[in-house]
Simulated scan of single mutants.
Amino acid sequence: MIRFIVSFFVFIVDVVYGNRSYARFYVLETIARVPYFSYLSVLHLYETLGFWRKADLLKVHFAETWNELHHLLIMESLGGNRLWGDRFIAQHIAVAYYWVVVPLYMLSPRYAYYLMELIEAHAYHTYDDHLKTHETELKTQPAPQVAINYYRDGDLYMFEETQFTSDHHFRRPSVDNLYDVFVNIRDDEGEHVKTMGALQKPEARQTFKSPHSVIELIADQAEQISEA
């Protein structure tokens, strides 16, 4: 089933919208962010019923939805949602997709995360190919204000929560032109891939920490060592 879902997703994004970049990215972002909604819904259900509680997963998955929302807003600012038919297709697939991922996540979180890892990897390569093909053109165009607000001038806490950092330092990317914006979106997708991979480990549901929790833990350990 995982392969079928991914193949369908790739068909819609690459074949149906292959020649219309911004409409293609609008559809990609509308559909690709849906699993995070599904994860949050199931986690909130478990919490409500008293089955299981894990605040770090809720934090990270919400930050990921916030991240993908801003990718979507960027595509809308570039005209990706201009046609009614594109909005209709993307939104109706997204609704159906939500109800596919909810039971999948309840039955097997590992497979639900694997599904998202494949989709985010596809998104990473899609944006990477776009950057390589249109580098010169993108560098001549200004960054949309919504991208500047999200990546540089706004409250960066939510942006930081999506970063699967190995060196425990948060990204502070440039947003000087449209090329920078697409680099940032591509790199965001790469962070999601790493997070989805980490969450497939058997112990992940008990041991996973959000980026800020990791940094706070390291700071506490360093303070304890200095006081010893």
Rank of each mutant, 00 (worst) to 15 (best):
G190C: 04
Q141Y: 00
Y150N: 04
E161P: 05
R171G: 02
G154F: 02
A147G: 01
E203V: 10
Q145S: 06
E160I: 08
Q163M: 08
T165Y: 08
F170M: 11
A147K: 03
S166K: 04
E191V: 11
Y150I: 01
E160N: 07
K139P: 00
Q163V: 09
Q200V: 04
M158S: 02
T162S: 14
S166Y: 12
S210L: 14
R152V: 09
D155S: 04
T136G: 14
Q206V: 14
E189L: 01
L156Y: 10
D187Q: 00
V183T: 05
R186D: 03
K139T: 00
Q200W: 05
D153C: 11
L199I: 12
Y150L: 07
I148G: 01
D155V: 04
V183Q: 09
K194N: 06
T140D: 08
I148L: 07
P144N: 11
A143P: 03
P211A: 13
D155I: 03
A204H: 13
Q163R: 08
V183E: 07
Q206Y: 15
L156D: 04
M158L: 11
A147I: 06
P211G: 09
G190Q: 02
V175W: 01
Y157V: 10
L156C: 04
Y151W: 13
P142R: 06
F182K: 01
N177L: 04
E160P: 01
M158Q: 06
A147Y: 07
E135Q: 12
R152I: 06
M196C: 10
M158G: 00
S174R: 11
L138I: 06
F170D: 09
D187N: 00
R186M: 14
L156F: 08
E137W: 13
T195H: 05
R172G: 10
Q200N: 09
F170C: 07
A204W: 13
T165K: 10
Y179I: 02
H169T: 07
V146I: 14
T195A: 07
D180V: 03
Y151E: 02
A147F: 05
N149A: 09
K201H: 14
D187A: 01
D180H: 09
Y179M: 04
D176A: 14
H168N: 13
K139Q: 10
Q200P: 01
F170I: 10
H192Y: 11
E161G: 00
P173K: 07
E135K: 13
Y157M: 11
N184A: 01
D167F: 12
G190V: 02
H169M: 11
M196D: 02
A204C: 14
E203R: 12
A204E: 13
K209N: 09
